[in-house]
Structures are given as structure tokens and as C-alpha cells.
Design a binder for these strands. Sequence first.
DNA 1: ATTGGCACTCCAGTCATGCGAGTGCCAGCT
DNA 2: AGCTGGCACTCGCATGACTGGAGTGCCAAT
Lengths: 346, 346
Amino acid sequence: MVSERGLQVLRAIVQDYVDTREPVGSKAIVERHAFGVSAATIRNDMALLEDEELIVAPHTSSGRVPTDKGYRVFVDHLAELRPLSPAQRAAIASFLDGSGDLDDVLVRTVRALTQLTGQVAIVQYPSFARATITHVELVQLGGGRMLVILVTDTGRVSQRLTFVGEDFDDADLAHIRAGLGTLLVGRPVREGLQRIAERLDDPDAQAPAHERATDEIVRAVAEELEEFRQDKLVMAGSANLARRESDFRGSIYPLLEAIEEQVTLLRLMGEMVADEQGLAASIGRENEAFGLGEASVVASDYDATGSLARVGVLGPTRMDYPTNLATVRAVARYLTRMLEQDDSSR
Amino acid sequence: MVSERGLQVLRAIVQDYVDTREPVGSKAIVERHAFGVSAATIRNDMALLEDEELIVAPHTSSGRVPTDKGYRVFVDHLAELRPLSPAQRAAIASFLDGSGDLDDVLVRTVRALTQLTGQVAIVQYPSFARATITHVELVQLGGGRMLVILVTDTGRVSQRLTFVGEDFDDADLAHIRAGLGTLLVGRPVREGLQRIAERLDDPDAQAPAHERATDEIVRAVAEELEEFRQDKLVMAGSANLARRESDFRGSIYPLLEAIEEQVTLLRLMGEMVADEQGLAASIGRENEAFGLGEASVVASDYDATGSLARVGVLGPTRMDYPTNLATVRAVARYLTRMLEQDDSSR
DNA sequence: ATTGGCACTCCAGTCATGCGAGTGCCAGCT
DNA sequence: AGCTGGCACTCGCATGACTGGAGTGCCAAT
């Protein structure tokens, strides 16, 4: 069984190893931390920690390095979030204040996070599946081209250009628009998709006069809604992986690929389990299923007007968890406040 | 003076070095290429090539490696574009066929290019500065929110949400819309920006009733046009840099940073000088001013309905220029055809 | 339970050595 | 004049032996 002091030794090892990136020995610990016991005592504790597979010695006779399990215990039981300095808080504010629409806010958020942590920053779009459609707008561009515009209550605006093959007169257009409006406005995206599907399947619903053209419009709306349903990520700071390359045993290729693919990271972010504070960490081998066995993700929930999403950082397993957890939480809170405020002012 | 055969030796060295990534010696050349002379003769030629600084020996007694200048001569005078295989042509077609709007076409283009070349693929958006504005649309979302939509003849649609503080009745809205229409429709983006600026400076032009609100709309239009003026890039395949990392002497950090920044690559792509075929290459140290002294860019012009832009790949100086040049050219031609066809069908 | 001491292990750096690839140069040949 | 074979020479690189140092595990003593 690992004693209380043993856990403190684990903490010291994690801290020093993250700091120095060198395996840490018993002597170094008594020098850097005031344990009040001798190196031999620390060695006994370390032997126990090694039995529990919380630390490991790379070579028979070298200092110890935390295992992934060791990091997990550290994060869950030993890490005290390091509060941000006033300068750091000011930095978040100056990055985010004065931003415009949702896209802009999220881009600024990842920039701030990557700047503060020196890691890759990731933010999930708020899930639009639960968002409500507030506007459907059709704009004719002439030559049979039609612009379909959807707006949700979360402030997302999306437009799609489609070729319907004919130009409508104002009355017909108003009629189609009204039809789509009753079908969709006030409905959540998910329900809207369902209704659209029914509409496409039901032969009676077709207005025979413009059958092909309206079908084309409905299809464009469906595609657009489908895109809403898919979650999206915004990222920044992938170059930081190259700076920290030596922290990854293998190549950073799979990491860059995951960043480019997005879908892997989306699943990973989605599956992480948050604690009661909304914070979550996924460490090293826990990510092996995603091909990211040498990386860690630290994330925090944030609240976009009722729809929960996550913001976090991706970096090497050997990262500064206390700082990153605190920074991610601070940014998430600021982001939540921004989005609330944004919403009430408009 | 370098003889004709000397140049062929240079070509052999470039080819073999790109192939094997090992310095190539005189013996290897006579073995792999049918020069019909002995190794000693090749050695004499190599000594001349070294005098001209076209090749260099990493160590006193090792094979030779092309210098950046050597690559330049190779690309300008010695490289014969390697024609694409039917399978490769089919791959381009299957990537690009069935694509939708401009964004979609460009995304598919970079995917195809990165797939075919294994490098980072880059495509410039067609310059919208010369594009003509065909539609200005205003959509009220209620709560004082207004959606401003601009459409150009190149098929780009852009929308922006702005808070105007009040809701207009239909007549007022139509009036404002008509005013913007006469100001902008049929004008190139550049000219539109100018007219907007004049409009904002001219105190007489303000409709006093809705002064603040219309100003807000005009300002949103101006911001949107400004964004049009800025060129943009679409990229894919940045993970490939990690795969080819050993080809870069230093870190790939500056490269990833340039990819994230975009602005550096935009300038670089813009400043490259194309030959009469629309092909351009910028090699190694020629890119030093951009912080990319160990990378090369190969690009080809393509024609987006009259507005010229570029598509290309970024990779290590030691890249397969004949293949990449040919692939970039093929993709550029296909892209040009797609955009033409697209335009006429709509 | 903690400690000092001690033997042991293993990494990392240094040096000497040998091998092989490749060059430069020269004398001779066509 | 150009090409060739031959030969001495230079390095890079891999190998192996040796050493110093850091760190451990264990044990007897406190």
C-alpha cells in the first residue's frame, strides 16, 4: 500500500519530470522538495510506487518516470489547479473582447488558449442538433440559382447555393418560403430533418407545378441541416506539436493527421467523462483507441446558451496538467460568459 | 564550363538523390545510368559541376548532393514533366467530379493534390477583388439583427450578421436595399469598396430617419467587401510534413507555422514567377525571406473565369519535381475546366 | 519506520581501430 | 583532346573497450 507520503513523492516526481524532462531520482527529490527524510526513505516509497505501476524506471539504474497510470492518479487526486496570473486573465479578456459572431468568438478562443498553454487548442462548436431553427430564407440569384439560408437561435447562419433550374415569380417564391417556414421554424434541427425526410417521402405533398424545382430546394435544406447535425471543431496551434516533438516517442504524424481529420478528435472529445466541475482529462494510453497513445487531452465543458460543448488542449502526455486544467477552465468560463452576454444583448 | 554530358550527370544526380536520399557517387551513376563512359570520366564532370556550385559533397569523401542552384538548373533545363498515368488522371476526376460550390471544389482539389503528391497541397482562392457584385440582400432576423448577404459573379456567397438595433418595415428595408443595390450591383469589389467609403464620408448621403442603423449596415457591407479583397488559401496534407521530416534539416516548426499563418504562403505564392506554361517553382533558399529556406513550392496558374489564381504543393527541397510539376499542372487544368463548365451550366 | 553504507547495474561519453565508399590526380591510351 | 585505369588519400561510421557517474536495492543499525 502506498502511504500518504508516497503520494506526495509521486506528485514530486510528476512535477519534476514535467519540469526537467529527465527521470527523477531519490536524491533530486530530497534536494528540491522539503520532505524532511533521507534519500533512502524516498527510495523505499518509490519501490512501492513502482509496485503499483505508478512510476517506472527506464533503465535498471536511473531515476523514475511517471506511468500513464501515475499521471492519472496525479490528475485525479494530487493536482491543485494553478490559478492564473492577472496578466493571463487580462490576456484572455483582450483576446476575446470585441469579437463578433460565433465563428469569430471560437477562433479567438482557440488563439487565446494556444497562446496561453503553448499546446494545440481545440474547441467544439456548440451542438446544433438541439438548436432551434428561427429563419428560413430563400433568395433568387437569377439564372435558376437559389440561395437557401438557415438561421438558428444559437446565432449560427448557414447558406447554400443550389441550382433549381428556373426562376420563380414573387408569389410562388413566397408560397414555397411559407411552406418551408411552417415546416421548420421553431423546430429543433433534429426534428426539422425528420420532417424534411417525411416531406420528401410523401408523394402527395409535392406541388406538381414546380415539382422538380421545389424538391431541389428541399433537398438543399436537408443537406444544410445535415451539416448542422455534424459537430465541428476549431483548432489552432498545431505547429506547437513540432516544438514539443521530442516529448513524443514516435512521430507526430498521427497527431497531425488526427488534427486534419477532425473526426477522431471529435469522438475523443465527445467520449471524455467530465468531473463535477466540468473538467476532463484523457491521458496517454487511454487514447490508444484513437491512435493517440502518446498524447493527452485536457478539456472543460462550456455552456453555449444551454447547449453544452467542450474546449480543451491537446499535447504530450508529459504536460503541465495543473496549469493546463486551470487555463482551460478559465477560458471555458470566460467563453460561457461571452456567449450568454452576447445572447442577452441581441 | 559544364559540358552537355555534365548536365546529364547533374540530372542523374538529382534523380538518384531524390530517389535514394543518399549522396550519389560516380560509381553509382555509371551503374544506374547508361552513360557509356567510366566512373573516372564522371568524376571529372562532377568536379566541374562542383566548381559551378551545382552540386556539393557533404564530406570530403562522399557522394554529391545537388545544391539549391543545382535543383534550379534541373527544373529549368533538365526536367521533363512525367506524364500522369491513366489511374492518376482518373483519380483527379473522381475527386473533383460531382462537387458543389466553389468552396467544395477547392477543398476537393487540395485533397486530390495531397493524395497524388504526398505533399502539402495549397490552392489560392480566385481573387475576388476583380469579381463583380451581382446581388446585395438584406434579411431581418428580428430583435434588431440583420443578415447582410453579398454574391459575386464568381459564385462566392458571403454573409454577415450585424446588430442594427431596430427592425425596419418592409418599405424602409426595400429602400435601403435598393440604395445599396444601385451603389454596388454590377461593380467590381474594388470599386464597390471605394463607393462605400465615399458614402460613409459624405454627410449629405445619410438618411436622417435611420441614420445610425443604415450606417451600421453599410459598415457591415464594407467589412464584408474588405474580406473579399483579402486572398485566402485552402490547404490539406500538413501531416505529410511529419512523414518527410527527415528531409528537413531543422525542425518543421516554421513550416507548420507558415501553414497556420497563411499570410506568408500567400505572399510566397503571389510572388512566384510563372513560365509561359503557367508553371512556377520556388526552391530552397529562394524562400529564405519567408522563413522557408529548406522547402520548395511548385505551383501552376489556373483560371477561375478570368481571374487567375494558383494551385500548388509545398514540400522539402529534395522533392520529385518532374512528378509534382506534372501533377500540379494536370490538377490546375482540370480545375480550370471544372470552373468554366460550372459557370456555363448555371 | 528510518537511516547510512555499500555493492551493483547500466547509461553515456571517450578513445582507438578498422573498414569501405568515394574522391582527386596522374600517367598512359585512343 | 578526351577518356580510362590505377592508386593514394580522406573521411564517416560502426565497433569495441574502458571509465565515470548517477541511481538503485538491500541490509544492518538506530
